[in-house]
Design a protein around this nucleic acid. Structure first.
Lengths: 142, 142
DNA sequence: CTTGCTGCAAACAGTTTGCAGAACT
DNA sequence: AGTTCTGCAAACTGTTTGCAGCAAG
């Protein structure tokens, strides 16, 4: 958490970016928020402490966070961009409930390894991946 | 291919849908087109044989195909909806080249099984899944 | 004081919708 | 004839961009 702030500060100064009130606030809210927030959710939360803020600033700043490596964009099937905190460099994937929209994360090393094998078989170099399982979570199955 | 047409006809009559020139054309083009076409690509192709066609009709009709079970929507990271033909009921996943946008399909039964295991562990019922590996294809790696 | 950042509004891209007229059945 | 479908244009959603003024260095 604190280390994320330092990471961003480092990135910012390396890029000659300025430190502004808005960026601080957006960073605080982003770090304190549950995972997978949509831009709109973050925007509304940020607005509470900083009423005059514009959508554009939030969009621009989240994009910066992604460049700085402290946030990762995720795209689910609902046409909204979400951001999650990067957790120390490894992938995790998502179980997405299509009924209540809850999201559970998981990791599976075997799947990762299989992906690499498949890629290798095709001469493909993986930069990134996305695995999402859509369905009903335990409480929505009834 | 022919059986897809029958499938759609069956669906259409069951739903009380009408058979129209546009739907026939869109179906023909869709079935004859390489996989993973974006709506715009399909629209442009359809326009050749049917100049006056509107975007809306293409969008509406592709959605119908998806409901009828002969097409499947896919969403890559570029903000466009694509459609692919459903191939006899099973999943396949995608290797997406971020440089030339080529798409290679693959299937892996072991990954599928692992997904089920993970879901079971969370009491989750999978309806659908999405696995995409982004990176550089063999020719773009140089 | 210089340059980057913000907020606003307008622009955009992809998709959806309302509606009058056309076309199936 | 009755109703669904089409094409058009306008509406919509999520996101980006241009720009004048503000603020950090």
């Amino acid at each position: 958490m604190l280390e994320k702030k330092r990471l961003f500060e480092h990135f910012a100064s390396a890029q000659g970016l300025r430190s502004t009130r808005q960026r601080d606030i957006i960073l605080d809210v982003f770090l304190s928020t549950h995972q997978h927030s949509s831009v709109e959710e973050l925007y509304l939360k940020i607005k509470q402490s900083n009423p005059g803020i514009g959508h554009a600033t939030v969009y621009r700043t989240l994009k910066l966070f992604a460049e700085a490596g402290i946030a990762r964009e995720i795209h689910l099937h609902d046409g909204q961009t979400r951001y999650e905190q990067t957790t120390a460099g490894e992938h995790h994937d998502h179980l997405v409930c299509t009924s209540c929209n809850s999201i559970v994360e998981f990791e599976n090393a075997t799947i990762e390894k299989l992906q690499e094998e498949i890629a290798a078989r095709h001469g493909f170099l993986i930069k990134n991946h996305k695995l999402e399982l859509y369905g009903l979570c335990i409480s929505c199955r009834k």
